[in-house]
Design a protein around this nucleic acid. Structure first.
Lengths: 146, 146
DNA sequence: GGCATATAGTTAGTTATGCAACTATTTTCA
DNA sequence: TGAAAATAGTTGCATAACTAACTATATGCC
């Protein structure tokens, strides 16, 4: 296999995203053990709303790297659980603004603490400068493909 | 937020697995453009069978980091497409051995070439030694959490 | 030998993703 | 101004993941 700088065995786990799947599973487990009912995907929506509340669904698509139907259904489920509400935009009738409820605001501190704890479990024994390199490389990969 | 060496903004994209999702989407797109009907998940099963044919479903669970129901359904779908067959193990009647068909063997060369091409697109402009660090760190993350 | 336990695989239910097609509204521009 | 194009969101269909509960077979051990 000429012109191929990557051996096969190395290819698989990168494509498979082993590491990020393992992190997501551990975070979900940590949520469950803390008695939290939400999924990681739902949490990722809340995460962006905690940073900036009342985003449009389109903006959530961009920030969470998901397509529109995925966001529609995540918001449906979050709305059922009473964690967000859709409010029509006053200036553009096509737009829903997705806003946090009080219940969702109450989850912020605990879930962010669990997320930080999970990342610490994941990164145990890894040098800080290596983490920096990983972040840089993964960002470059994303930019190469977007 | 004491005892936390990672700032919040950095957390999200790692958990989200942005980069590996982007790679998987691109690989799927490259398959589709080449006229291939299989999903990345189905391909990942074939990938392991090309390395060693006639594995048990349990062994595929281990090698692909999936649970048993996921493998059951992936094999169901691959069987429908005529790419694998289930053969009862001669020594243990609980076990199905999953074996490639001729049609599946015919996909090996093209799909591995597309996978390599996709990785080259993904890793454009990234130093070889940085790729090595990423692989090492992601393996460590996986080991920390498994 | 026979019961308890472990292992391999399947089924059912919920959530999530990707794609295509659709509705409603807004913007563009001839 | 008014038709075409762009944008925001939803719906339907297929695939895949996780959990829990289930069946069938094999193993361990008294």
């Amino acid at each position: 296999m000429p012109n191929n700088q990557f051996k096969r065995g190395e290819l698989y786990s990168v494509i498979n995203g082993m590491a990020s799947i393992a992190v997501a599973r551990r975070l979900q487990k940590n949520f469950r053990q803390a008695g939290l009912e939400i999924t990681i995907e739902q949490w990722s929506i809340l995460y962006h709303l905690w940073k900036e509340d009342c985003l449009s669904q389109q903006e959530l698509c961009v920030r969470t790297f998901r397509d529109k139907p995925s966001i529609t259904r995540l918001i449906d489920n979050l709305e059922k659980q009473g964690l967000v509400n859709r409010h029509p935009s006053p200036t553009d009738r096509r737009i829903n603004l997705v806003c946090l409820t009080e219940a969702a605001r109450g989850l912020q501190e605990l879930t962010l603490q669990l997320a930080n704890q999970t990342m610490e479990e994941a990164l145990t024994g890894i040098a800080k400068q290596d983490v920096e390199i990983v972040k840089k490389v993964l960002q470059q990969v994303y930019d190469n493909l977007k």
